[in-house]
Design a protein around this nucleic acid. Structure first.
Lengths: 218, 218
DNA sequence: GTCTATAATCAGATAGAC
DNA sequence: GTCTATCTGATTATAGAC
């Protein structure tokens, strides 16, 4: 029994078409910004009919929310893994330094300006992320007997995440004034606490793993 | 002698209508995001005819560029003043902490993703800003004999500006985890170098209200 | 589930009256 | 300079065939 118009009620949560639409939306958003993600352009990129978007998601807003959630859940998992590794600071720094995550969340922040449903979604997830991070930094700094007065965990956390984000944004604009020195300083400090970065501490292993994963098409 | 279709050639650089359009565009962008700035909505907000946009700016893109330039030039002046005051660090911190500037430039960054003309404009101005800032921090730290190894000027500069921006963004989402402690730490450090913030060092008189709010720690 | 066709709306932009 | 009217095309969303 297949409903003629499931819209936002009982459309299947997982299907090839649904996934293809989300994937295409993500790519489109990264390539040309959220404003470029219209139902028609999205469908044509996915090689599907625009009508399917409304079949699977109900509205474009709901598609954006589904896309955000998917990404947030993935990041949450990766973060949990990175923060529980033996080099949590490297993990945090490398995660915050991820180019596509930064760009995507930037687009969502801009989107949230006039789509209130997105706004609430972002706020909720951001708090989750932040709490996990703060807990980790606090724990690590305590274990290293780092003076709370000279390096408050909350400050260090905001420092790492916001500088990382800012560096990424500026890179896309071709701006790199002071970048090298800033990165060198931060990484020197992390090295002082956790030693040299080992491959295990980084997520996705950047390019190599991803390239390999894209090799297999199912 | 009035041209029937000046479009991007000889439309007057200053007029009440032109200014009203830019003002309305700025407000609209802050209220609902750049995507909400369509010729029709903009004109109706300004109480003018949509046709005037094309008369004064040629295209919507040109309007965005004009708007960005106007804001950037204003900020450049304010920054020059703030950085040449007797409390340049307070000036930098307070400027970077400006809510509307942050929101606006965030919108422009998102806009730049699919309007390449904006992109070049942002990059050029950002470098100007950054150079002025770096020069100031370097000078101030040298005069205070601050060790370049423990507090590299480039790092401190990126720290101040990007944390500031991040705090503002999060505030609009109702997120404040770690904010009070971070602000307290940074302002304590600035106070250590430049003493208590005096009204003169801040622009637009935002100080008093903020200072009161920052009084409490988290 | 996936498509065609279409409704209703809104976008950027121009022509021309005044 | 500012307006009305309009062209063209894109957008969200729905109805219904298969």
């Amino acid at each position: 029994m297949k409903p003629a118009r499931p819209v936002r009620t009982s459309a299947p949560e997982s299907s090839d078409a649904r996934t293809a639409l989300l994937d295409a939306a993500e790519r489109l958003m990264l390539d040309e910004g959220y404003a470029a993600v219209s139902s028609r352009r999205l469908a044509s990129r996915a090689g599907l009919d625009p009508g399917l978007i409304y079949y699977y998601f109900g509205t474009m807003d709901d598609l954006f929310i589904a896309l955000f959630r998917r990404g947030a859940e993935r990041s949450l998992e990766r973060q949990a893994q990175a923060l529980s590794s033996e080099q949590p600071l490297w993990g945090l720094w490398d995660m915050a330094h991820d180019p596509s995550d930064t760009a995507l969340s930037g687009e969502f922040v801009a989107l949230a300006n006039h789509r209130k449903a997105i706004r609430a979604e972002i706020a909720a997830y951001s708090k989750k992320f932040r709490r996990m991070q703060l807990e980790m930094v606090t724990r690590v700094f305590e274990s290293h007997r780092i003076d709370d007065e000279s390096w408050p965990p909350a400050f260090v956390l905001l420092l790492l995440t916001s500088i990382s984000r800012q560096l990424r944004i500026e890179e896309t604009f071709g701006i790199d004034i002071g970048h090298a020195k800033t990165i060198a300083f931060i990484e020197r400090r992390i090295r002082g606490l956790e030693g040299e970065r080992t491959p295990r501490a980084t997520r996705r292993g950047a390019t190599r793993v991803r390239a390999r994963r894209m090799g297999r098409r199912s």
